[in-house]
Simulated scan of single mutants.
Amino acid sequence: MKKEARYLVPGDYMADPSVHVFNGKVYIYPSHDWESGVPENDNGDHFNMKDYHVFSTDDVMHGEVTDHGVVLRVEDVPWAGRQLWDCDVAFKDGKYYMYFPMKDRNDVFHMGVAISDRPEGPFTPQPDPIKGSYSIDPAVFRDDDGSYYMYFGGIWGGQLQRYRDNKAVEHPSLPEGDEPALPGRVVRLADDMLEFAEEPKPVVVVDADGKPLTASDPHRFFEASWMHKYNGKYYFSYSTGDTHFLCYATGDNPYGPFTYQGVILTPVVGWTTHHSIVEYKGKWYLFHHDCVPSNGKTWLRSLKVVELEYDADGKIITIDGGAE
């Protein structure tokens, strides 16, 4: 379905939006694409990604979008190496917790935590990354019982293939063909929101027969996890990366398994997209990005939003991403 979409920050290149409703407003937490002058590669080195901004609005499709400025920089983080990729923010007991992936000085991704008294920041980072953390794309979900879960993981530049059973391996590899696809991860957060409360677990996406999607399936997980609930069901959504879909699967608990349901967004113009799904004022919205405004220049990305709809059975109606 072709729907009206809106570019949210036309004056800058922002991507990977994580979106939440705090204090009656929509807050957008994106990554920030800067040209680095490095040739394009799968590690994302052509994007400098040296800081985060926060944006807010009270009218998603037509209202003013406020830029609250830079809220965290690479140089603010004591353990920093480089590259602030996709982040997310959660609220608990009067504090806002920003979870961010960053490469340490050995070029290995870990998850950091930064804290603020306000949703618009600025955020003050903790001195060390979360113990046992790895890979990229944290998405934090608050369940109805008050528990918080982080979904994370990304293949290739996201380094997920370097780990098995939460331990780094000497020889990274990816499954192939009819082997089960490499899954993302989910972990419950500790009460203080600063550590993992358990060992991360695989997020398995299965077909209608209960079999895990294979590595060759164009709808298998690649990166960009998101979790939301609709009519009591858990909707796990994700990017398929090199096949350029946003897909979703549903389950009965935060750990899954999740049964594959379909495509949310067909391919956009540009590299792999990234998204979040949020309800605001009785409507559902899909936030994502594409590369149309940059005219393909190193695939610099721009934030978009489009209204999301469900059918009577709770199926998400597929949106046309615009790529030919």
Rank of each mutant, 00 (worst) to 15 (best):
A5I: 05
R6D: 14
V9T: 15
D12Q: 12
D16R: 09
H20Q: 15
V21N: 13
I28R: 07
H32T: 15
H32D: 02
H32V: 13
D33F: 06
S36L: 09
V38R: 13
P39S: 05
M49F: 01
K50Q: 14
S56A: 06
M61F: 05
H68E: 12
G69D: 03
V71S: 04
L72C: 10
V74H: 01
P78F: 06
C87H: 11
V89S: 00
K92E: 01
M102V: 09
K103G: 00
D104E: 04
D104C: 06
V108K: 12
F109I: 03
A114Y: 04
P119A: 07
P119W: 08
D128H: 11
I130Y: 06
K131F: 13
A139Q: 12
R142E: 15
D143E: 12
D144H: 11
M150K: 08
G158E: 05
G158S: 08
R164I: 05
N166F: 09
E170K: 14
P172E: 06
S173F: 14
P175G: 00
P183I: 04
G184E: 09
V187C: 04
A190E: 11
M193V: 09
E199R: 11
P200D: 05
D207G: 09
G210R: 04
A224C: 13
M227S: 00
K233W: 12
Y234V: 03
Y234K: 03
T240K: 04
T243C: 09
P254Q: 08
G256A: 07
G256H: 06
T266L: 07
T273L: 09
H288D: 10
C291M: 13
S302L: 08
L303F: 02
V305H: 05
E307M: 13
I317C: 03
E324C: 04
E324N: 09
